[in-house]
Design a binder for these strands. Sequence first.
DNA 1: TGCTATCCCATAAAATCCCATGAGAGCGAC
DNA 2: GTCGCTCTCATGGGATTTTATGGGATAGCA
Lengths: 159, 159
Amino acid sequence: MELFTSTYENRIDRKGRVSVPAKYRSILEHRNEPLILTRALNLPCLEGMSAERMNQIADAIDALDAYSEDAAILQMIMASAQEFRPDSEGRIGLPDEFLAHANLDEMVLFVGVGRIFQLWQPNAYHERENISRNAARSGRTPQLILKPRANGGQNGDSK
Amino acid sequence: MELFTSTYENRIDRKGRVSVPAKYRSILEHRNEPLILTRALNLPCLEGMSAERMNQIADAIDALDAYSEDAAILQMIMASAQEFRPDSEGRIGLPDEFLAHANLDEMVLFVGVGRIFQLWQPNAYHERENISRNAARSGRTPQLILKPRANGGQNGDSK
DNA sequence: TGCTATCCCATAAAATCCCATGAGAGCGAC
DNA sequence: GTCGCTCTCATGGGATTTTATGGGATAGCA
């Protein structure tokens, strides 16, 4: 499976390290790409993605006028991004800015949301989940429009 | 990764030297290219890049009318460019014009913005970051259209 | 002779490597 | 089904290396 799914709650040890879920790691390793984390623009969480996606953003920046305000905002994404190379046990050390942005202390909740995954303070995520769920119950469901994929033939392989 | 990301705040010592972040150094060394610094055109910061990037800018200038005002302005980028060779500990000495242009005194904030990086007076950058972040929060986010890349893409997605 | 830039060595803190342990999932034999 | 074996994975912590930084020594240069 090429998509990040499910959730995993892992501990931050006293050195500030946390294990990246093995499922996520194997996706990145399978693509032979390093792990990138960024601070989400408008949420108190971190976002994890492959380097491929960062390159796409860099391309988007280059396509803009280098001195425009739009470019400045996209550059903020790059400035908050950091490359991580998990140690031999699959852990990464989270720097203070990242811990602070997502209010992380003891535990981290990894949340797979498809092409990327998020890192949440567990309670913060559960609150947010309840809010969204209640919104859905009260009828405010989003439109979900599925389109056929271009490369219909290939499906997910695995280990 | 090939991109300059994240931020690093380093001290200018009493001899006027500052360490170039090891991550940035290794990118340049990996490409076997010297470090070039310029004064940013419309911002109080310096910009660091590889020599290859300089060539791209030169190409962009050539694409303009050689006698236009725009070309004259962009040529100032080249005029302010200077090549630096870090010492054995990875430090460079910043000349006075550069210190003055970016109002640098004690600390330098290296800000990776993709294909280049910037050198800011820390407070000056944080102010600018707040402005951009508020703009992003209030909905004025730039269009971000991610395009599949020519070389890297194993995952055929479009969205 | 002063000034400046560069080389070299030293050091503390932070990041990373490496080995160990234990819980738990999966699996096969019975 | 269930017992026990194996393997994976998250976690802990000591050992080692990297990195930023300070400063003395040396060599040009005005």
